[in-house]
Simulated scan of single mutants.
Amino acid sequence: MPAIDPLLKATRLLDFEAAPIADLVADRGWRAHGEHDRIGAAYDFVRNEIAFGYNRSDDIPAPEVLVDGYGQCNTKGTLLMALLRALGVRCRLHGFTIHKALQRGVVPEVVYPVAPNEILHSWVEVETESGWVNLEGFILDAPFLASLQREFSETESLCGYGAGTGCLSAPPVEWTGRDTYIQKTGIANDFGTFDTPDDFYLKHRQNFGILRDWLYRHLIRHWMNRRVRAIRRGHLPRLPGFAQPNHRHEGTNRAA
């Protein structure tokens, strides 16, 4: 029996044989596409049909992310990898940390000072006919990104509100066969590539501490998700000492 390609295998986190993912792939008919379009279909699904938001933990299985219907860089990346492998596309994870400044505006100001200075981050690397391609632009869904573009229309560089880009008006987030990015300018440390997210989280974990971890899971992330929903509707919170959004709809820009 031939060995399973390590960049195509299922794992605890990349459980693409689970019913939610297997049924999705079958229902969408993605396997009938060529490789370029298979990658694009999975990418576009994770980018826009899985909303930007914060799950209970980074290291949750792909089917749970799908059922949640939302995720952030690490969890959406796990789901994208599971879908790609279900479609026979080789992929791996590239791990990093990002500066916490990228999350300012999403993390409540009262919590921000005690948040870790660096936050665990990752993107997906996918193998194509022309070589390896970096996929990170799936993190922010289109309505959320459009809200930032409207409110910060007078600037190209933004590090905050979940974005880290030097070309806010036209960031490389669409699948074209090339690299996509939306948080790249916030990167602090590079941990290199890993065959699976399971391997990555065995070696690297977000160190909140017991109390902060409990608070994040049960209180803070729900607060953050309310802010994300408000930002998606165009209601961005004002941040002391931060370049302010346009606030075209003055009086409607309050976020929890």
Rank of each mutant, 00 (worst) to 15 (best):
N55H: 15
I21G: 03
G88N: 06
A19T: 10
I21N: 00
I39G: 13
G95E: 10
L24A: 13
R56C: 10
L93R: 14
A32C: 03
N55Q: 12
C73A: 13
A42S: 11
L24M: 06
D27N: 13
V67I: 14
F96K: 07
V46G: 00
I50D: 01
H99K: 12
Y54F: 15
E35H: 13
G40C: 08
D37P: 07
W30T: 05
R56Q: 07
T78Q: 06
G29S: 08
I98R: 12
V89Y: 10
R85A: 04
A19G: 11
R85M: 04
T97H: 14
E17F: 09
F96H: 12
G29A: 11
R38Q: 15
V67K: 11
V25C: 04
C73H: 05
L93G: 05
Y43S: 07
N74G: 14
R92H: 09
L79F: 00
A32N: 06
G40T: 02
V89K: 11
I21W: 01
R38S: 08
S57W: 07
Q72E: 15
P20C: 02
S57N: 08
G29M: 06
G88Q: 06
M81K: 00
E49H: 12
V46F: 02
N55T: 14
E64G: 08
P61L: 01
K100E: 12
V89D: 12
R92T: 02
P61F: 04
K100T: 05
L66Q: 04
L24H: 12
G69F: 10
R90S: 11
R92S: 09
A18H: 11
V89N: 14
Y70K: 14
L79K: 05
R85H: 09
T78L: 08
V65M: 05
I39K: 09
A86W: 01
R28C: 13
A41H: 10
R92Y: 04
D59H: 05
Y70V: 09
G88V: 04
A82N: 03
Y70C: 05
R38K: 15
A26F: 03
A22W: 04
V25M: 13
A42Q: 10
V25R: 08
L84Q: 07
F16Y: 15
A82G: 01
T75C: 10
A82R: 00
G34S: 08
H36A: 14
L83K: 02
H99G: 09
L83S: 01
L84T: 04
E35Q: 14
F45V: 09
H94A: 11
V65F: 02
E64F: 11
K76Y: 08
A86D: 06
H33P: 02
I98T: 15
